[in-house]
Protein backbone atom coordinates (compact mmCIF):
# COMPACT_ATOMS: atom_id res chain seq x y z
CA UNK A 1 0.00 0.00 0.00
CA UNK A 2 2.96 2.27 0.43
CA UNK A 3 3.79 1.74 -3.19
CA UNK A 4 2.96 5.22 -4.45
CA UNK A 5 5.60 6.76 -2.18
CA UNK A 6 8.60 4.69 -3.21
CA UNK A 7 7.85 4.31 -6.88
CA UNK A 8 11.33 5.38 -7.80
CA UNK A 9 13.54 3.71 -10.34
CA UNK A 10 14.49 0.96 -7.91
CA UNK A 11 10.81 0.14 -7.29
CA UNK A 12 10.15 -0.16 -10.97
CA UNK A 13 13.26 -2.24 -11.43
CA UNK A 14 12.09 -4.66 -8.81
CA UNK A 15 8.74 -5.07 -10.45
CA UNK A 16 10.31 -5.73 -13.82
CA UNK A 17 12.78 -8.13 -12.28
CA UNK A 18 10.14 -10.07 -10.44
CA UNK A 19 8.20 -10.49 -13.61
CA UNK A 20 11.29 -11.48 -15.52
CA UNK A 21 12.23 -14.09 -12.96
CA UNK A 22 8.72 -15.44 -12.87
CA UNK A 23 8.80 -15.61 -16.64
CA UNK A 24 12.14 -17.37 -16.62
CA UNK A 25 11.07 -20.00 -14.14
CA UNK A 26 7.80 -20.53 -15.89
CA UNK A 27 9.50 -20.78 -19.24
CA UNK A 28 11.81 -23.44 -17.97
CA UNK A 29 8.96 -25.37 -16.44
CA UNK A 30 6.95 -25.23 -19.60
CA UNK A 31 9.80 -26.22 -21.81
CA UNK A 32 10.42 -29.13 -19.52
CA UNK A 33 6.91 -30.49 -19.77
CA UNK A 34 6.80 -29.77 -23.47
CA UNK A 35 9.97 -31.62 -24.20
CA UNK A 36 8.98 -34.56 -22.07
CA UNK A 37 5.54 -34.97 -23.58
CA UNK A 38 6.41 -34.09 -27.13
CA UNK A 39 7.34 -37.59 -28.34
CA UNK A 40 4.17 -39.12 -26.99
CA UNK A 41 2.02 -36.37 -28.42
CA UNK A 42 3.64 -36.55 -31.81
CA UNK A 43 3.27 -40.28 -31.83
CA UNK A 44 -0.37 -40.03 -30.83
CA UNK A 45 -1.08 -37.58 -33.56
CA UNK A 46 0.75 -39.59 -36.16
CA UNK A 47 -1.06 -42.73 -35.14
CA UNK A 48 -4.43 -41.03 -35.29
CA UNK A 49 -3.68 -39.70 -38.70
CA UNK A 50 -2.41 -43.00 -39.95
CA UNK A 51 -5.46 -44.82 -38.65
CA UNK A 52 -7.73 -42.33 -40.32
CA UNK A 53 -5.91 -42.58 -43.59
CA UNK A 54 -5.97 -46.35 -43.53
CA UNK A 55 -9.63 -46.28 -42.75
CA UNK A 56 -10.64 -44.10 -45.65
CA UNK A 57 -8.35 -45.92 -48.08
CA UNK A 58 -9.06 -49.63 -47.81
CA UNK A 59 -6.08 -51.84 -48.59
CA UNK A 60 -3.50 -49.25 -47.66
CA UNK A 61 -0.75 -49.96 -45.18
CA UNK A 62 1.74 -47.17 -45.81
CA UNK A 63 1.39 -43.46 -46.31
CA UNK A 64 3.24 -40.26 -46.88
CA UNK A 65 2.36 -36.59 -46.87
CA UNK A 66 2.22 -34.90 -50.24
CA UNK A 67 2.21 -31.20 -51.01
CA UNK A 68 1.94 -29.28 -54.23
CA UNK A 69 5.16 -27.42 -54.87
CA UNK A 70 6.43 -25.86 -58.07
CA UNK A 71 3.73 -27.42 -60.17
CA UNK A 72 4.04 -30.93 -58.96
CA UNK A 73 3.02 -33.08 -56.07
CA UNK A 74 6.00 -33.97 -53.94
CA UNK A 75 6.45 -36.00 -50.83
CA UNK A 76 7.60 -34.08 -47.80
CA UNK A 77 8.71 -34.98 -44.36
CA UNK A 78 6.94 -32.21 -42.57
CA UNK A 79 4.65 -29.83 -44.48
CA UNK A 80 4.94 -26.15 -43.76
CA UNK A 81 2.34 -24.47 -41.70
CA UNK A 82 -0.66 -23.35 -43.77
CA UNK A 83 0.42 -25.52 -46.66
CA UNK A 84 -2.36 -27.69 -48.08
CA UNK A 85 -1.48 -31.33 -47.79
CA UNK A 86 -2.86 -34.65 -48.95
CA UNK A 87 -1.72 -38.07 -47.93
CA UNK A 88 -0.75 -40.66 -50.44
CA UNK A 89 -1.73 -44.19 -49.49
CA UNK A 90 0.28 -47.20 -50.64
CA UNK A 91 -0.28 -50.91 -50.23
CA UNK A 92 2.23 -53.29 -48.73
CA UNK A 93 4.06 -53.48 -52.05
CA UNK A 94 4.50 -49.72 -51.96
CA UNK A 95 2.18 -49.36 -54.90
CA UNK A 96 0.05 -46.24 -54.97
CA UNK A 97 -3.58 -46.82 -54.05
CA UNK A 98 -5.16 -43.42 -53.55
CA UNK A 99 -5.15 -40.11 -51.77
CA UNK A 100 -6.49 -39.35 -48.34
CA UNK A 101 -7.62 -35.75 -48.57
CA UNK A 102 -8.49 -33.57 -45.59
CA UNK A 103 -11.22 -31.00 -46.01
CA UNK A 104 -13.09 -28.62 -43.80
CA UNK A 105 -16.00 -26.28 -44.07
CA UNK A 106 -19.04 -24.90 -42.33
CA UNK A 107 -21.55 -27.44 -41.14
CA UNK A 108 -24.85 -27.02 -39.37
CA UNK A 109 -23.38 -25.82 -36.11
CA UNK A 110 -19.71 -25.29 -36.60
CA UNK A 111 -16.85 -26.24 -38.82
CA UNK A 112 -16.77 -29.86 -39.95
CA UNK A 113 -13.33 -31.33 -40.58
CA UNK A 114 -13.11 -34.60 -42.45
CA UNK A 115 -10.79 -36.87 -44.34
CA UNK A 116 -11.83 -38.81 -47.41
CA UNK A 117 -10.14 -41.40 -49.51
CA UNK A 118 -9.97 -40.86 -53.23
CA UNK A 119 -8.82 -43.28 -55.91
CA UNK A 120 -7.85 -41.31 -59.00
CA UNK A 121 -7.84 -44.42 -61.19
CA UNK A 122 -11.49 -45.10 -60.45
CA UNK A 123 -12.40 -41.44 -59.94
CA UNK A 124 -14.18 -42.66 -56.87
CA UNK A 125 -14.40 -41.66 -53.24
CA UNK A 126 -13.65 -44.85 -51.36
CA UNK A 127 -14.06 -43.81 -47.75
CA UNK A 128 -14.83 -40.88 -45.48
CA UNK A 129 -14.14 -40.12 -41.88
CA UNK A 130 -15.29 -37.11 -39.85
CA UNK A 131 -12.40 -35.77 -37.82
CA UNK A 132 -14.11 -32.95 -36.06
CA UNK A 133 -17.67 -31.69 -35.81
CA UNK A 134 -20.14 -30.21 -33.36
CA UNK A 135 -23.26 -31.29 -35.19
CA UNK A 136 -26.45 -31.84 -33.23
CA UNK A 137 -26.35 -35.04 -31.22
CA UNK A 138 -28.95 -37.47 -32.48
CA UNK A 139 -29.34 -35.73 -35.81
CA UNK A 140 -26.33 -34.10 -37.38
CA UNK A 141 -23.94 -36.46 -35.70
CA UNK A 142 -25.30 -39.22 -37.90
CA UNK A 143 -22.80 -38.06 -40.49
CA UNK A 144 -20.33 -40.19 -38.57
CA UNK A 145 -22.61 -42.34 -36.45
CA UNK A 146 -24.89 -43.56 -39.19
CA UNK A 147 -23.12 -46.57 -40.72
CA UNK A 148 -25.30 -46.49 -43.81
CA UNK A 149 -24.43 -42.92 -44.56
CA UNK A 150 -20.72 -43.41 -43.94
CA UNK A 151 -20.63 -46.55 -46.05
CA UNK A 152 -22.30 -44.59 -48.82
CA UNK A 153 -18.90 -43.03 -49.37
CA UNK A 154 -17.17 -46.34 -50.07
CA UNK A 155 -17.79 -46.16 -53.79
CA UNK A 156 -18.95 -42.79 -54.92
CA UNK A 157 -18.16 -41.23 -58.22
CA UNK A 158 -16.94 -37.64 -58.24
CA UNK A 159 -17.91 -37.15 -61.87
CA UNK A 160 -19.26 -34.54 -62.36
CA UNK A 161 -19.70 -33.99 -58.64
CA UNK A 162 -21.27 -35.75 -55.71
CA UNK A 163 -24.94 -35.02 -55.16
CA UNK A 164 -26.86 -35.69 -51.99
CA UNK A 165 -30.37 -36.89 -52.72
CA UNK A 166 -33.36 -37.74 -50.62
CA UNK A 167 -33.04 -40.99 -48.81
CA UNK A 168 -33.82 -44.00 -50.96
CA UNK A 169 -33.67 -42.18 -54.25
CA UNK A 170 -30.02 -42.87 -55.13
CA UNK A 171 -29.94 -43.92 -58.73
CA UNK A 172 -26.60 -42.80 -60.13
CA UNK A 173 -23.05 -43.57 -59.03
CA UNK A 174 -22.43 -39.97 -58.06
CA UNK A 175 -25.44 -39.80 -55.76
CA UNK A 176 -25.60 -40.47 -52.08
CA UNK A 177 -28.62 -40.81 -49.81
CA UNK A 178 -28.87 -37.90 -47.41
CA UNK A 179 -29.79 -38.54 -43.80
CA UNK A 180 -33.45 -37.91 -43.05
CA UNK A 181 -33.74 -34.96 -40.72
CA UNK A 182 -30.09 -34.03 -41.08
CA UNK A 183 -30.15 -32.88 -44.65
CA UNK A 184 -28.03 -29.85 -43.98
CA UNK A 185 -25.27 -31.81 -42.29
CA UNK A 186 -25.23 -34.46 -45.01
CA UNK A 187 -25.12 -31.83 -47.69
CA UNK A 188 -22.35 -30.04 -45.84
CA UNK A 189 -20.23 -33.20 -45.92
CA UNK A 190 -20.85 -33.61 -49.62
CA UNK A 191 -20.10 -29.97 -50.27
CA UNK A 192 -16.83 -30.12 -48.35
CA UNK A 193 -15.72 -33.13 -50.36
CA UNK A 194 -16.73 -31.49 -53.63
CA UNK A 195 -14.93 -28.28 -52.79
CA UNK A 196 -11.82 -30.05 -51.63
CA UNK A 197 -11.86 -32.14 -54.75
CA UNK A 198 -12.28 -29.10 -56.95
CA UNK A 199 -9.34 -27.43 -55.21
CA UNK A 200 -7.07 -30.37 -55.78
CA UNK A 201 -8.24 -31.84 -59.06
CA UNK A 202 -5.96 -29.61 -61.13
CA UNK A 203 -3.00 -30.30 -58.89
CA UNK A 204 -3.20 -34.07 -58.83
CA UNK A 205 -1.02 -35.74 -61.42
CA UNK A 206 -2.36 -38.11 -64.06
CA UNK A 207 -3.41 -41.45 -62.64
CA UNK A 208 -0.40 -43.72 -62.72
CA UNK A 209 2.18 -40.97 -62.26
CA UNK A 210 1.67 -40.36 -58.57
CA UNK A 211 4.72 -39.70 -56.44
CA UNK A 212 6.44 -42.87 -55.40
CA UNK A 213 6.62 -43.87 -51.82
CA UNK A 214 9.87 -42.61 -50.40
CA UNK A 215 11.04 -45.52 -48.38
CA UNK A 216 12.67 -43.49 -45.66
CA UNK A 217 9.46 -41.70 -44.89
CA UNK A 218 7.10 -44.59 -44.31
CA UNK A 219 4.82 -43.58 -41.58
CA UNK A 220 4.48 -47.20 -40.68
CA UNK A 221 7.88 -47.66 -39.14
CA UNK A 222 7.46 -44.95 -36.60
CA UNK A 223 4.16 -46.22 -35.34
CA UNK A 224 5.45 -49.73 -34.95
CA UNK A 225 7.79 -48.70 -32.21
Amino acid sequence: MNAPTDSGASGSMRLVLTLAIAGLVSGIAIIGIYESTLPTITANKARELREAVFKVLPGVSQMQALVYRDGELVAVDRPDKDEPVVYGGYDEHSAFVGYAMPGAGPGFQDTIALLYGYRPDEKNVVGMEILESRETPGLGDKIYKDAVFVSGFSALSVEPEIVAVKKGTKSRPNEIDAITGATISSKAVVRIINETHADWSAQLPEPGSEPRLEATETAGTEADQ
Partner: peptide, 23 residues
Protein backbone atom coordinates in the same frame (compact mmCIF):
# COMPACT_ATOMS: atom_id res chain seq x y z
CA UNK B 1 17.36 -24.82 -29.42
CA UNK B 2 13.98 -24.66 -27.80
CA UNK B 3 15.53 -25.02 -24.38
CA UNK B 4 16.86 -21.54 -24.74
CA UNK B 5 14.07 -20.02 -26.74
CA UNK B 6 11.36 -20.49 -24.15
CA UNK B 7 13.04 -18.77 -21.24
CA UNK B 8 14.33 -16.12 -23.56
CA UNK B 9 10.90 -15.27 -24.85
CA UNK B 10 9.44 -15.34 -21.39
CA UNK B 11 12.09 -13.09 -19.97
CA UNK B 12 11.77 -10.86 -22.97
CA UNK B 13 8.07 -10.52 -22.60
CA UNK B 14 8.33 -10.06 -18.88
CA UNK B 15 10.94 -7.35 -19.27
CA UNK B 16 9.21 -5.66 -22.15
CA UNK B 17 5.80 -5.38 -20.58
CA UNK B 18 7.15 -4.80 -17.12
CA UNK B 19 9.08 -1.88 -18.51
CA UNK B 20 6.19 -0.53 -20.52
CA UNK B 21 3.85 -0.72 -17.59
CA UNK B 22 6.37 0.80 -15.25
CA UNK B 23 6.96 3.67 -17.64
Amino acid sequence: NSLLVAPAIMVGIGLFFGAILAI
